[in-house]
Design a protein around this nucleic acid. Sequence first.
DNA 1: ACACAAACGAGAGCACTGCTCTTGCTTTGG
DNA 2: CCAAAGCAAGAGCAGTGCTCTCGTTTGTGT
Lengths: 244, 244
Amino acid sequence: MSTARGARARARIEVTAAIKDEARRQLAEEGAAKLSLRAVARELGMVSSALYRYFPSRDDLLTALIIDAYDSLGETAEAAHAKVADAGPVRRWTVVCEAVRDWALAHPHEYALIYGSPVPGYTAPDTTVPAASRVGLLLIGIIRDAHQGAGVALPRLPAELEPEARRLAEDLAPDLPPAVVTALVAAWAQLYGLVGFELFGQFNRLVEDREPFFRHAVAQLGHGVGLVFPQDTGTGGRGSRSGS
Amino acid sequence: MSTARGARARARIEVTAAIKDEARRQLAEEGAAKLSLRAVARELGMVSSALYRYFPSRDDLLTALIIDAYDSLGETAEAAHAKVADAGPVRRWTVVCEAVRDWALAHPHEYALIYGSPVPGYTAPDTTVPAASRVGLLLIGIIRDAHQGAGVALPRLPAELEPEARRLAEDLAPDLPPAVVTALVAAWAQLYGLVGFELFGQFNRLVEDREPFFRHAVAQLGHGVGLVFPQDTGTGGRGSRSGS
DNA sequence: ACACAAACGAGAGCACTGCTCTTGCTTTGG
DNA sequence: CCAAAGCAAGAGCAGTGCTCTCGTTTGTGT
């Protein structure tokens, strides 16, 4: 029978998925620390020990959720990007950054799981690397296109950073100038600083209109990686010193 | 007697401090989630229920630690800043940012406690606000001095952000241009993005020479808030387009 | 000086957690 | 067809936050 080995295998897949779904539900509701194996098992009508046949430990279940979260974020960002794939680098950059923020606001606990402080005594295994890179690859692609299309300005690069910049470019995008790749990595981290601050309440009672604030900050990040924005072609306000 | 109300009160203060010390020790070793009231009590030779006379719940103990962490970070940053108080804004900016990073690397779990994902189902009470603002106030002071000393360039500010910018300036530094205050808040968030990414392992197997990387990123942040760096006075590399 | 109230430490206990081990039952593959 | 592997269930261990009760100590107002 074609599904000879499938009966059990498929059941296993289904149960595994059910566990992850229920775990994701509890994660979204209460956060990672309150995610309880026993509660998941209870909700699924099984006994807690049975759950260990599918995930050898709570941390392994969390790891599975982390990978799924990375994939969900990556997929969302890619979908948003696909809709404006024909637009200029500036618009694509903006859209991807805003997709990241939107996803984070919609899935705060999952965002916290992957970009907040790592879970207690837990270090993510290498398995998560490919899923974690999806947004980064997207941004690199955008900057690459901008570079080929002459829509990019070369950021400055101090001499002390040149070796590291060369290493980064080698690893991430050998066809791009090291200065650009370095700026991109920094912008990537800064993007998550902006999102994290908003998500974790650091902007409470401080920033109210967060969409325009974020948009502007993202535009500035774009500047950092050399993207040339439309308004830059106008009369520049930059460089005008303010006297005492 | 002068210490009539002191005997017990002082004992209380001492025990409270001992509890916090031991808790801080466990926090530094194992992280916030593995901080156990019972373990703290055990280590102090008391029974767990006795500890509830001093902290009504685990979260309250955690809150106390959070405030202490904010204070420790703020104090460290202020001390570092005091050493270069006579230097120019650029140097002071750099020193404060690096002090923040150094403190974070030295106290990773405490940093995670205050700037990572908030602890499970826990929202920081308003008590933490003053302690949390110390580094921010420091940075504002630096930019204020830079502004008065004509060492600052006005960042651009899109029209849609003007109301929010005015509000921010009103709250944080009414004597500074809204565009500067807005850029400063963004830079503040981005700084913590950089530190968090390094601390939480996002730069593992990616960025190796992190000091120069961070220095450069912080310099770029300084640009964002209008600080004019020495090398800016030279021939600019900025604006040179890269063709296809 | 005495009495009363508040603060305190200790212990038992509740409900919960992650995890292990053993016991049977069912499905699968040689 | 039968042994082996996969599986669910239950009991149990060590640990957690937190509550309640019980004497005892300490400070204070009369």
